[in-house]
Design a protein around this nucleic acid. Structure first.
Length: 206
DNA sequence: TACCGT
DNA sequence: AACGGT
């Protein structure tokens, strides 16, 4: 594996597990089995390592989301795929990460902001429009407002004052919000199709 | 690996 | 004191 990729993979693992601040450049060098000098030949500073690591992680997320059942091939199947994505994505994520990045790594935070605006929001809007066309979501919801609300609710669980990690875990929170969001926009047909699809999925995966 | 500055 | 950076 390329040195650069090895550094990024090591950093990704450590950042996800422990957050960005408590993982030192010495830790990453030691765990990657290289010297700090090698890291600084590939990355100008920690700021850039954090940026490149999460840039890489977001690209992986996009690829994984593209492998889910496509929105165009079935909104309901896609929804069940999304719940699985949520379980994986937030399951191994230290709850402090987003706050640390927002406070101490502003360029990386901007990367997340751009990702939300350019990718997440568009995906949600596509899902809402398709779901309305298919009669799964109520026609009267305002796509733009509800898409923005959905995106922000995914972010505010990272506020440790509102949602202390000691009391809530990220996966349970995200799944609870997702279910609540869906039941707020489902038609009767949508609700039934979703529950049926979820049961089918669970039967096949037990 | 040792070292310096913050 | 610990950690980024040389």
């Amino acid at each position: 594996m390329e040195t650069r990729d090895k550094i990024i993979e090591t950093a990704k693992e450590q950042f996800m597990r422990f957050g960005v601040r408590s993982v030192t450049m010495d830790d990453i060098a030691r765990l990657a089995g290289i010297s700090k000098k090698t890291i600084y030949q590939e990355f100008s500073d920690k700021n850039q390592l954090v940026f490149d690591t999460f840039s890489n992680a977001l690209q992986d997320d996009i690829i994984r989301l593209e492998h889910l059942p496509k929105i165009k091939d079935g909104v309901i199947e896609h929804l069940v795929g999304l719940t699985n994505f949520i379980r994986q994505r937030f399951g191994d994520m230290n709850p402090m990460i987003m706050n640390e990045i927002q406070r101490y790594f502003p360029q990386c935070w901007q990367l997340f902001e751009d990702f939300k605006k350019d990718y997440v929001l568009k995906e949600i809007i596509e899902l809402l429009e398709k779901g309305k066309e298919e009669g799964y979501f109520r026609m009267e919801i305002n796509t733009e407002i509800i898409a923005l609300m959905r995106m922000e609710q995914m972010m505010f669980i990272f506020d440790p004052i509102k949602f202390p990690p000691s009391k809530f875990n990220a996966v349970d929170l995200q799944l609870e919000l997702f279910e609540h969001f869906l039941h707020g926009i489902f038609t009767e047909k949508g609700r039934e199709a979703y529950l049926k699809q979820k049961n089918q999925y669970n039967e096949n995966h037990n």
